[in-house]
Simulated scan of single mutants.
Amino acid sequence: MTPPDPYVFTRRSLLSSMAAAAVAGSAIVSAAPRAFADSDGDLAAEAGHGLPLTVLNNSGEFANRSVHLYIVGTAGDRQVRVTRRGTLAPVKLSDNHAGGFTDYAIPLAARGKTTLRLPFMSGRIYVALGHKLKFKAVTGADGKVALQQPAGWVESDPNYPVLHDFVEFTHNASGMFCNTTMVDMFSVPMMIRLNGTKDHSTGRLRDGGRAQVFHALKNDPDFSRLVVGDRRIIAPSHGLDVGRFPQHYFDAYIDKIWHIYRNKNLVVRTDAGTFTGRVKDHRLTFSGPASVSFAKPSTRDVLYCDGALAAPNDGITGPVAAVLGAGFNRSTLVNHSKQPTTHAGAFYDTAVTNHYAKAIHAATTNGKAYGFAFDDVAGWASYIQDAGPRHMHLTLTAF
């Protein structure tokens, strides 16, 4: 395994400005790495680059008629969606109909596989099982039309009762970059596959893996309230914000790190070089290719890999912050003063750790998952890419 490369397309770099979801009254505006498409003709040109996407329902729990697909995101800085006919269309306020919501659902074929085309865009492929999702077109703070997306951790969200999940992707002239993500929640078992210059796949759970994750967290007193029946498990970051997870869970561990590295060096390797840090004047300060420092993070900062651990896309502070975020969530910073720790056997080996991420990784066949935002450090995220993609596959796997 290798240290994180700040220039590799990852969940953070390709969807960093796409909020995880929206609570009532707020809109998500996501960014894409292409120029602004200022007409429907431009959107048609984007759709002309379509990559075949085959969706297969092997859930064993839901018939194809009960599976609803949504492909939403951005082309340039314009909110778009893929239609039932496989074309790219702008999100419009006039799309809101019954109950004030859009109906962007794409039905699966009556049986077998469903094949669509993914245009050049950046966004998400949602699946909803049993019931449709309620997306709402709204006017964002910038005056542009945006799409309010599901927030599965907010009880007042109209989509809270619906069993749903999503994968993320960016498809552009450089290739296809995609991941299965549990950064927000864990719900529907899915795997993705890319055929291109190589054959890649990720996201598959072990037999009984979903039940294994639910069982592990139901029996952990700090994480049990994140489990919402058999519908989903809320990530501890969102759980903290909605009162389902202890606000100070990591505080003692953070204090211990700050104490240890007052008199001991913490070494962080990145593609930009090696940084050596100690705690000075209450900040973890690194020297090396550049001087970077971090205030003591809170539990919330650790879970979101944000705040004091925010990772700007600067090639210097960002990579160091990513390694620290991974070290905190994997609880490797006490016993390993050289980071990143790359061997999975060293992860999550303390009582206080991100047991949510631990359980999800343990349930996947290749050990890879996106349990927190910096899970791509050392290559442990369920992320794949290909510079010459020919076909993408999304499979709903057995519950």
Rank of each mutant, 00 (worst) to 15 (best):
K144M: 15
V188R: 12
A351N: 14
I260L: 15
L396H: 05
M182G: 10
P221M: 06
G208L: 01
S187P: 04
K198C: 12
H361M: 14
A44K: 15
T274N: 10
P236M: 08
D184F: 05
T2E: 15
G318P: 00
L324N: 02
P389M: 13
M185C: 05
G143P: 04
Q385M: 09
S16W: 01
N335P: 01
D241F: 06
S382M: 05
S337D: 04
R231S: 14
D142F: 12
T299A: 14
L56A: 11
A362I: 05
K134S: 13
L93I: 13
Y261D: 04
A211M: 11
R231K: 15
F275T: 01
A326S: 12
E46C: 11
A359Y: 01
N57R: 02
D42R: 11
A351Q: 13
T202A: 14
A322P: 02
S122T: 15
C305S: 13
N366D: 15
P158V: 07
P312N: 07
F36T: 14
K338H: 08
A109C: 05
R85H: 14
A173D: 15
A22S: 15
K256L: 08
P90N: 12
V138Y: 08
A32L: 03
G143A: 12
R11H: 10
D306L: 07
G288S: 04
T139N: 13
A290D: 15
A151E: 11
T197M: 13
S331K: 02
Q148L: 11
E46S: 08
L266Y: 03
S13I: 01
I71A: 14
G209L: 03
S156T: 14
A21M: 09
R225M: 07
H393W: 06
R300P: 03
A398N: 10
L51Y: 07
R278S: 02
G175H: 07
F250P: 06
P236Y: 09
A20N: 14
L51T: 00
R84M: 08
T353F: 08
M392P: 07
K256M: 03
P4I: 08
T341G: 06
T353H: 07
D386N: 10
Q79W: 08
L194G: 06
A63C: 00
A44H: 12
S224I: 02
V55M: 10
Y253D: 11
D222E: 09
N64C: 00
L56R: 13
A19V: 10
V302Y: 12
K134M: 11
G50H: 06
Y348D: 12
V29I: 13
T342G: 12
R225G: 03
Y356T: 05
V268F: 03
L133A: 10
A105I: 07
D281F: 03
G41L: 15
F223I: 02
P340V: 02
T83C: 14
L133C: 13
A211P: 05
T114M: 03
T270N: 10
L309T: 04
A272M: 09
T397C: 10
I316D: 08
T114D: 08
G325F: 00
V279N: 05
E155Q: 14
C305P: 00
A290H: 13
R117E: 11
A109V: 00
L163H: 13
R34N: 10
H282Y: 09
A252H: 15
H355I: 02
L88Q: 09
A346N: 10
H343S: 15
G243W: 02
L309A: 03
F275I: 00
G273C: 06
M176K: 02
L15Y: 05
